[in-house]
């Protein structure tokens, strides 16, 4: 009898305090990130969204009056040319990244578990240093008086320095260099997930190495390819500093256009409107990705 009285009283208090401590832990766990997200993501994004519908006075001051004229300006003639140029550079960078990343990811995916971990770590390691510093080191190497040109001239292979940076090619080089890892990771993940039995089954049914690649490996790694393309293409539209450093201001990209609205032109509403369009474009691509059966976890890395 004593036992049953005990077991009736104790669990209730226990459950109550248990419930409170559990709730406390739960809030304790999500509160810091919630405040962080609210302050640094939600509020700025809302600000940009609101700003994109605001008017502007002659000196660039913001007038809190609703207007759609910013969005009309987004599609103005001279801007369309910049978008086309950005999308072109973004697309070329994406294709170059894909052509480099796919064979490399396949090479890593065929390694043993230890080699895989080491190689994938090496892919990520450069990103711990500042990307601007890394871009400037390319300049040091490739500019007209840079290490590569001087060496080649000394060796007598060339007589006039090659222009390797401060042009569109330089921008693409910068983009590929900074974004390659975002192509390698999702492609590697999708290749690594392919069941080796499927390769053997295809081999058993008479497929040659090329047929296995075409019929099995590439189709099964499509989600990774698509994820990688999104992860490279979208940032490439916004990485204005790549064009600043590597392009030497020769071509203006979408990111530069936005940057200019906020700094030089003092047209914050227009800058915001272009930013909103970029966010919408990103969302559209993400929805397409998910519709095609892509895994959102591929985009977030692991």
């Amino acid at each position: 009898m004593e036992k049953s009285i005990d077991s009736e009283n104790v669990p209730i208090t226990k459950t109550k305090s248990h419930y409170f401590s559990k709730t406390l832990i739960k809030w304790g766990q999500i509160l810091p990130i919630s405040i962080w997200m609210l302050l640094l993501v939600v509020i700025p994004l809302m600000y940009v969204l609101i700003m994109s519908f605001m008017s502007r006075d002659f000196y660039g001051g913001i007038v809190y009056k609703f207007t759609l004229s910013n969005f009309a300006q987004v599609f103005a003639g001279q801007n369309l040319k910049i978008y086309a140029q950005s999308i072109g550079i973004g697309a070329v960078s994406t294709v170059v990244c894909l052509l480099i990343a796919y064979p490399f990811a396949m090479f890593i995916a065929q390694k043993g578990p230890v080699a895989k971990t080491i190689l994938m770590a090496l892919v990520v390691v450069p990103s711990v240093s500042n990307s601007l510093v890394r871009l400037f080191s390319w300049i040091t190497l490739l500019r007209k008086t840079g290490v590569v040109n001087t060496t080649l001239e000394h060796l007598g292979i060339i007589h006039h320095p090659l222009s390797m940076v401060y042009n569109t090619g330089g921008i693409v080089l910068g983009m590929v260099y900074l974004l390659l890892m975002f192509m390698i990771i999702p492609i590697f993940n999708s290749l690594d997930r392919i069941d080796h039995n499927l390769i053997e089954a295809a081999e058993d049914l008479g497929a040659t190495k090329w047929q296995i690649l075409k019929e099995i490996v590439i189709p099964l790694s499509k989600p990774g390819i698509f994820a990688g393309c999104i992860m490279v293409f979208i940032p490439s539209l916004g990485y204005f500093f790549v064009s600043d450093v590597m392009g030497g201001g020769t071509s203006t990209m979408m990111g530069n256009l936005i940057e200019n609205q906020f700094q030089t032109s003092r047209n914050w509403p227009l800058g915001s409107a272009i930013s909103v369009m970029l966010i919408v474009l990103t969302l559209v691509l993400l929805v397409l990705f998910q519709r095609r059966g892509g895994d959102m976890a591929d985009l977030g890395g692991r």
């Binding site: 499927l198 053997e200 089954a201």
Partner: peptide, 20 residues
């Protein structure tokens, strides 16, 4: 000889059907 040069085919333990 590689598998495809033998007139032998295999049914795998976990089916190994092509999911796509």
């Amino acid at each position: 000889l590689p598998p495809y040069k033998r007139k032998i085919n295999t049914v795998f333990q976990n089916y190994a059907l092509f999911p796509h």
